[in-house]
Design a protein around this nucleic acid. Structure first.
Lengths: 221, 221
DNA sequence: TCAGAATGCGAGTGACCGCTCGCGTTTGTC
DNA sequence: GACAAACGCGAGCGGTCACTCGCATTCTGA
């Protein structure tokens, strides 16, 4: 069996790898400002300073560019979220947990504005939608696990709903964060944390009380 | 000066008005499922059961269809929000106020799914973006006024930020609401209300306390 | 009744866009 | 230095889509 061979295809020279990176960066810029569908491959090639033919030397079609770009972003996103979520457990105070998660997630999105543009357009190609759905499901699962850990004994449906809401609220907040800069951006980050904390805090105490009540009734029947 | 003439153009027969309504309904369906850019005028004509030529008898171009549809929806939206917001004043308990507003707004969006599709796609034509921005600004102003009334003495920047957040959170919640049905949809509506109430409640008491404190210090210097 | 306007049709036109192809240039290998 | 493979080019092909045009049909008003 052959080793060291990522995928089928021509063996790349260093020059080729550089071109690919260059094309992906150009694509990121164009997608970012124009959106996927409205971006033309010719425009991407022009932005990268190469001819359309050269672009198709490295990507079989337009979709493949978005796929490759999306794959790399998703991979980085998974790493970021994995690290961030691993640093949190139910013993962490809610405020601190939310603070850490929101800070790390927003940092990633601020560094990679394409991610938001590519993933939330309604016109993204099929393969990428699937990958994004997979990422979303993955993220949802992680958040669900965290929510379940914070709210022991909560029904599965409630946990799922809460996780959906957390992600949705985060996304809404992120949009506001990204559309502001400097001090105002920081203010929105703070408010986003407040939203999540204030939404989750009552659930926390509710389930803690319920657990205590259960304990009490069990002990003193 | 001539009266009774809405715009320049040929005088319409009743048949023409019917065709226009029919074409707009068809456009709503097509836009809803395909999005604006990906929708072809031929597809809209086909959906309406007429020829492309007939479509262009009533609309000068593709954008005009979206504009007209958007105009009508925005008009209805303005009416709905106007009524809903007029029914609320600072003497209303927060919970009741939020409940009323969320119920009326979500009802509108559930009845007109095109609205969300047309207004939140990244590929909508320029004129419509402007109109949507105008609507958003209008809505923001109304929400700001309400927030300012609920939080007397709050700095303008805070009021604006809070209003932005309320609208953003609502939009996020709406997306979740629209993507579910029946009991689960109702559950999301409830949670959306909770999010807003829990986010705003502390602000309310904070500014009430601050106002009381100001009053006290002024009276007993 | 009848002229003129409004409505209706659908093949066709021009522009754009994703993508190809033939051919020249650079790079790695022996 | 010689050969092959990877790289690079850009005019151009095929297809799609917004939109048009010439002509037929239906309606309105006098």
């Amino acid at each position: 069996m052959s080793v060291d061979q990522e995928k089928a295809g021509p063996r790349r020279q260093a020059r080729g790898e550089r071109r690919i990176a260059q094309l992906l960066e150009a694509a990121a810029n164009v997608f970012c400002t124009t959106g996927y569908t409205a971006s033309s491959t010719n425009a991407i090639a022009r932005e990268a300073g190469v001819s359309p033919g050269t672009l198709y030397q490295f990507f079989p079609n337009k979709e493949a560019i978005a796929i490759e770009l999306g794959d790399r972003l998703i991979h980085q996103m998974r790493e970021t979220t994995g690290e961030a979520l691993a640093a949190v457990d139910p013993s962490t105070p809610l405020e601190e947990a939310i603070g850490t998660l929101v800070d790390r997630f927003t940092a990633f999105s601020c560094q990679h504005p394409v991610f938001f543009a590519l993933m939330h357009g309604p016109d993204i190609p099929g393969r990428l939608t699937e990958e994004h759905d997979a990422l979303h499901a993955h993220l949802l699962g992680q958040v669900e696990a965290l929510v379940a850990a914070f709210l022991p004994g909560a029904p599965a449906a409630d946990v799922t709903r809460t996780a959906h809401l957390c992600l949705g609220l985060y996304k809404a907040g992120l949009e506001l964060v990204l559309s502001h800069e400097g001090a105002e951006r920081d203010a929105y980050v703070r408010e986003l944390k407040n939203v999540l904390i204030r939404y989750l805090e009552p659930l926390l105490t509710e389930y803690r009380d319920r657990a205590t009540a259960d304990l009490t009734t069990t002990r003193t029947p």
